[in-house]
């Protein structure tokens, strides 16, 4: 009934309700925001949070760039943060209003995409690797050859998530290149590798958690948190860290330049930097956050999960993806388009 009321007020008096005192509009990936976190925030501050979902960085960017939708906070991936900043869509943060800014773990402060955290606060970070069902393939899983040159058992069974940046990075690392390379020789190798591998893929699809759990997929390029969720359902699933190199990613919260509820937004940003609260974000979506001291508030199963805690020997293979120059992006898009069509 209450939601009916809310919807009706939204219909007739939305300008009033959307920008009223004590409101906050968070624009975030779907199924990514812990409901308990929001509940706690509302209890502590009296601010009502409205969450609106998006399903890709590009949609979020297009909508924010067009403007007028009334969002206050957005959660772009690392390589999109400079794009948002470059287009003037994010407001520079006033650190004096963020008493918990010191809680950001040291390694997440001077990040390439936002040096000194001038624009964004860490939300969650993770890795992109491969997930394999060991009952089907018992060999080495710590290689991107799982999808680029699949072993016989996996031919015709591999799924690849349709994320251009992640997949291109894995393939470039596999071919011995650097992230954002514009070296045509490397890229040609990348293209040929991908094109040769495509016939042994079964799909390029999301929804890997469920399908790994139910054995509908036995191998896929996947994110670590999703693989952990699948493993909890299906113990045969393991996560592989490709030794050739694999991408690290982080989604960070930024304050939009045209935000209406700036005070509330600052309160929220400060709130999520409290270790206990950051741990709530992580326990919900199963990815690590960037807040020092949050580990102790996390559930036991996450503290020792091999998907979340990167094993020592694979740490060095993880590389952050910088925002590539437009010229490199154009090359990658061309290869990607050729691949997916």
């Amino acid at each position: 009934m209450k939601s009916m009321l809310i919807a009706t007020t939204a219909l007739f008096g939305s300008t009033l309700s959307a920008f009223a005192e004590g409101q906050l509009n968070l624009f975030n990936w779907g199924n990514y925001t812990s409901p308990e976190l929001i509940e706690k925030f509302t209890e502590e501050t009296g601010i009502t949070v409205t969450i609106t979902d998006y399903d890709s960085n590009t949609t979020a960017l297009a909508k924010v760039e067009a403007g007028g939708s009334g969002f206050d906070l957005v959660v772009p991936s690392a390589n999109y943060v400079p794009v948002f900043v470059g287009k003037g869509l994010l407001a520079e943060l006033d650190h004096s209003r963020l008493s918990n800014i010191g809680n950001i773990a040291q390694e997440w402060v001077d990040v390439a995409w936002d040096p000194g955290r001038k624009f964004t606060i860490p939300w969650q970070w993770g890795t992109t690797g491969v997930a394999v069902n060991t009952s089907v393939y018992g060999g080495d899983v710590n290689t991107s050859d799982i999808f680029l040159d699949p072993p016989a058992e996996l031919v015709g069974k591999v799924n690849v998530v349709p994320e251009m940046n992640d997949v291109m990075a894995l393939a470039i690392f596999n071919a011995g290149g650097e992230a954002c390379t514009e070296d045509l020789e490397v890229l040609k190798k990348v293209r040929d590798k991908l094109m040769a591998a495509k016939p042994s893929w079964i799909a390029m699809d999301y929804g890997t958690t469920d399908k790994l759990s139910s054995n509908d997929l036995v191998a896929t390029v996947n994110w670590n948190g999703s693989t952990m969720r699948a493993r909890l359902n299906n113990p045969d699933v393991v996560y592989g860290y490709p030794v050739e190199g694999y991408p690290l990613w982080m989604d960070s919260v930024g304050l939009l330049a045209d935000a209406q509820n700036v005070d509330e937004a600052y309160k929220f940003l400060d709130f999520i930097m409290v270790p206990e609260n950051a741990a709530m974000i992580s326990s919900f979506a199963r990815y690590a956050n960037g807040i020092a001291g949050s580990e102790e508030f996390m559930p036991q199963e996450m503290k020792e999960a091999p998907e979340i805690v990167i094993p020592e020997e694979f740490v060095s293979a993880g590389k952050f993806l910088p925002t590539c120059p437009q010229s490199a992006t154009e090359l990658y898009t061309a290869i990607w388009t050729e691949l997916v069509k």
């Binding site: 939305s14 959307a18 979902d53 399903d55 939708s69 929804g207």
Partner: peptide, 25 residues
Amino acid sequence: TEFVKSAGQDTLPTYMLGQLRRALT
């Protein structure tokens, strides 16, 4: 709907679309 909606205007389909990439419950 995904492109026209403003803050707080998710419909059931866009709510699901947001979950599509991760996991549906």
